[in-house]
Design a protein around this nucleic acid. Sequence first.
DNA 1: GCCCACTATCGAAACGATGCGATTCGCATC
DNA 2: GATGCGAATCGCATCGTTTCGATAGTGGGC
Lengths: 363, 363
Amino acid sequence: MVKVMRSSPARTSVTLADVAALAKVSTSTASLAYRRTGSITERTRARILAAAAEIGYAGPNPTARSLKSGRSGIVGIIVAGTVRRAFQNPVAMATMSGLSEALDELDVGQLLLSHRSESGDRSARLLDGMPVDAVVFLTRGEEFDGLLPSMRARHIPMVGVEGPHEEGVTLVDIDDASGMAVLARHVRDLGHTRIGVVMRSTRIDANGPPGPIEPIDANLETISNRTIRERLRAVASVFPDAVRVEAGGRELDSGEIAAGRLLDQASPPTAILAQNDMLAVGTLRAAAVRGLEVPRDLTVTGFDGAHIPLLGRRLTTVEQPLHERGLQAGRMVGELLAGGAPSGIVLPVVFREGDTSGPPPRA
Amino acid sequence: MVKVMRSSPARTSVTLADVAALAKVSTSTASLAYRRTGSITERTRARILAAAAEIGYAGPNPTARSLKSGRSGIVGIIVAGTVRRAFQNPVAMATMSGLSEALDELDVGQLLLSHRSESGDRSARLLDGMPVDAVVFLTRGEEFDGLLPSMRARHIPMVGVEGPHEEGVTLVDIDDASGMAVLARHVRDLGHTRIGVVMRSTRIDANGPPGPIEPIDANLETISNRTIRERLRAVASVFPDAVRVEAGGRELDSGEIAAGRLLDQASPPTAILAQNDMLAVGTLRAAAVRGLEVPRDLTVTGFDGAHIPLLGRRLTTVEQPLHERGLQAGRMVGELLAGGAPSGIVLPVVFREGDTSGPPPRA
DNA sequence: GCCCACTATCGAAACGATGCGATTCGCATC
DNA sequence: GATGCGAATCGCATCGTTTCGATAGTGGGC
């Protein structure tokens, strides 16, 4: 039996046909032994399973099965940037946790994919090559839009968490605008008039210096991320004269530097609305470094409710139902897979007054 | 054109054959347009792609492609318990982060699966139905052993992070034993003789009361989790007379309660070795509650290096290269997929002296 | 102008399972 | 012992690609 060794796999796998042959039944009958539908004698089934065990057959090949059925049992979860970075982001993780809870329930596999627009081609091809029954875009911005056409062509249902409205994407949204408006009104009711906003970086990966100080509503339409844009707009609706500065990155340090830029002005704001809790913590640091006491000298607010451990303070912020929105997204995937057409939802946020906001210092 | 609506999918998908027909080529040629091997005129390829665009063909069906090629481009990542819980576990996340970094590099999809032995059937069937090219068991204990036979039968390469040695599983291990031994010797060199160990819960999900106080080496062989067992054995080799108590769960509270049981004895230990940092923090709390000052009245050590924010203290602990072991696991997956047969590795741990250990109080 | 060596294209056979329709079997009934 | 009927089993087409071997076409060398 001299046989040329095949250079690659040599993976002579056992197939259902082999099992059938050994059990002396047709492959269709052998298949029956593994399905729940169709009728088969308990005796033959036992014989088939015994044969399978004998030659080490581990059950039907999932790929072949998917090909016939048109379903893979896999849901793609697409995060921005890298999977690694998503694992370090508390907001993403809290959402994931809810999403996973719901998907676990559905008995589907969860395929994690990352996408960044720069290396768009590569990750788009990766997604295109994956046998997914549905996809969830996690905290989506516009960077995912390049992926939509091919998903639509394949009739793959899509669920988006945050992000722009796009045909075919069922959206689980958070009522950002009114959340931010509530915060702004809270600050206004306290008596503040000079307001600064530390806004989230519009860059995805880069880390750099903060942007310039600009009017709150400068070139709003050029900001492609809807979430960022709407939060700014909400502030503008309450404080048309507020100014903003964009953080250079997503870390705490970037928030501190950006806030510092606002505080070092000749006539600094008496309240700083940060666009998320991480930036707010950075802002608190910037204040501490400059000897400002919060809230006596400066009011600081956040946005998120990501439960960042906070040295004994309670941040005045707006809490997003992060886990809940993940759950809802998972539930929608379930409905879509079942052939339904769920409508998108907008989840409310909850204002939570902490001890970082108070009346402005007397002039 | 009255046509009966098919009750189910109706998902009339466009296939390569349709594209070929429109472009007036054979399907084999149409396939060539999407492959990198084989020769095809640039003109024909363009014609084919144009046809594809015209009828909305999004590229070859991944499932069919996998069936032919025998590869799915998917690596399964299996965590214990639920995916959700894994997202909340800092040790798992740090490892994941390294693993994802390596897998991103390989351009493979990462399929998250959970497995708990109780509902073993269900999750085993889920895994069996997934088209994975390789699997990684994340921080594996024995609960995954039921999954091995079928993976072996399918010739699916396996990588384990922690866990018992099993045929066919390439292991990325951490030198637990010597790490714990280093800690024990550190404590011995400080002069301690009465030692207590707060050990990790051997239960997976449940939460309950702590176990009884037992000799350090009682029934060691009945503890199925190798990691837990070896850490105990390492302590026993230095302190044969130490006692241990098992935490009732994985949370901080469980650690506090278990440590309390040790501290409330008539003649309490002067040093408590906790089996991980979370339990150590719980132990610190138990000490604080009882008015014990650390390290003056009690020495506390941890294990992990999961960087738990610690109110200004630095825990005496042993740091595991968590991110690194994830990276290594990913690298091994790469080697295995390329047909290699990497050998397992044992990563060293690093002792880090903090300010929670000191000489025992004078009697 | 003929033949050869390529190259681009094609046809058909897999890949491993499933499901429909047809066939056979077992068994009770007349 | 023939007949009828449901249940168990079988054969074959099929899912959408890829790939191998075969065929047609192209151009160059003489």
